[in-house]
């Protein structure tokens, strides 16, 4: 009885570990190359919001507020410039685009372009809230 149970456990566990089939492989969540920059941007916006709030509460002097706000805006501009730089690099093919067969969410890059940015006329294969080229809202284009 004990031996049977022991064998059962051992075989079961080993089978579970070793029988990895191709369809078991997890589909990784898409990761944008901008993710860390976006996070940085978000945290700067959050800092700005906090700053504004604290200023309204009267916790800091005008001078402190203006100075810090300017610093944060400059930092934000730096991050945005970095985003543009990465974008340009991708466009120039310096950063390898990910394998197309895995990228189900964003079809093949050469597919028919259906969505056009109203501001800069850039074309995209999927609906976007904001243009990947100029960053302006693209709501109108989806209609």
């Amino acid at each position: 009885m004990t031996i049977g149970l022991a064998c059962l456990i051992t075989v079961g566990v080993l089978a579970f570990i070793l029988s990895v089939r191709a369809r078991d492989l997890p589909q990784p969540e898409p990761v944008s190359p901008f993710q860390h920059l976006d996070e940085r941007k978000a945290s700067i916006y959050e800092n700005l919001r906090d700053l504004q709030f604290e200023y309204r509460l009267g916790k800091m002097s005008d001078h402190d507020y203006q100075q810090t706000k300017l610093d944060l805006q400059k930092e934000l501009a730096g991050v945005m410039a970095e985003i543009d730089r990465v974008k340009a690099e991708i466009a120039a093919g310096k950063i390898p685009a990910p394998a197309p067969e895995l990228v189900k969410t964003a079809a093949a890059p050469k597919g028919p372009a259906k969505y056009v940015c109203p501001s800069c006329k850039a074309e995209f294969v999927q609906p976007l809230k904001f243009c990947g080229e100029c960053g302006k809202p693209m709501k109108a284009a989806e209609a």
Partner: peptide, 9 residues
Amino acid sequence: AAAAGAAAG
């Protein structure tokens, strides 16, 4: 202020 390394003045 060039937080992310880009030249940003």
